[in-house]
Design a protein around this nucleic acid. Structure first.
Lengths: 144, 144
DNA sequence: AGTACAATGATACAATGATACAATTATGGA
DNA sequence: TCCATAATTGTATCATTGTATCATTGTACT
């Protein structure tokens, strides 16, 4: 499966960034559709005569920005909802459904409502804490 | 026989581990009883759109920990109910996982943390309100 | 020159998939 | 009833795919 991405090895622009841009273009032009599978990191790397880690890096960037989904052992796929520009009533209803499902699942577990609120607060706090820690770690590394 | 297990392919948590946790939850909540037959590795795999070896791996893990019994040619069955303290820890982990999935899903919708807490409180309040109403309705019906 | 840092490569690893196989059950005809 | 055979179920093994970690290369700045 050839992608025929146009990469310029002499441009000075990192290859992984060029790959990201070329794939974004395919997505914007409709040549790539949600649900489509991208070539494996190894096959695209072979096509571009590049190490597969470079492709993996490009894929990881797009994964983190919510464009694609990379799954170990399965492959990488264009996501159904490219950007989370879920707007207005659709987004509100999605959140409402999500919360109701959360409550229903908790009920099946036999979790009381106050315990549920507490769990959410705990996990949110933990999440915030861990992100703060990583920032502090970076600062410490840089200062000495 | 559909299990309707909630698996998140984007969470980074291996599918086979998620399957183990979801089934443990069903056991802890009483939705699965000792003696019950689990779906075959192939049927559950088909339902989850996953290779059946992934399900077999999940089953093997639970088999090795004595929760279920898998028998070639026969199927897999729930062996015994874990002791109460284990049930407790399963519940705790289940709630933690459930909340983390809730937060992850909300993040994908672009929902801020305070908005998430508010949504939960609103839905909980609405739920409580409706249950009170129904109780009152019953009372009215019974008195005359 | 020398150093620091980003980009790329090499290698080992974990998760998932594909395929062939063995054990058990179901079925059908003598 | 009983045996042969097909269908179903879990098992074993290897291939494929992405991940993690460290080494190497190149480039810019002192």
């Amino acid at each position: 499966m050839d992608m025929n991405l146009e990469i310029d090895f002499r441009s000075g622009i990192p290859i992984y960034l060029q790959v990201v841009e070329r794939i974004k273009e395919r997505l914007a032009s409709g040549q790539l559709q949600p649900g489509n599978q991208l070539p494996t990191v190894r096959s695209l790397a072979q096509e571009l005569r590049v190490n597969f880690n470079t492709i993996a890096r490009a894929y990881r960037i797009m994964d983190e920005s919510g464009i694609i989904s990379t799954q170990q052992g399965r492959g990488t796929y264009i996501l159904e909802m490219p950007p989370p520009e879920v707007i207005g009533s659709i987004r509100a209803k999605a959140l409402e459904d999500l919360t109701q499902r959360y409550i229903a699942d908790a009920e099946r577990l036999g979790v009381a409502t106050d315990e549920l609120s507490r769990s959410l607060n705990e996990e949110l706090a933990r999440k915030k804490e861990s992100s703060n820690l990583s920032i502090n770690d970076l600062k410490k590394e840089n200062i000495p």
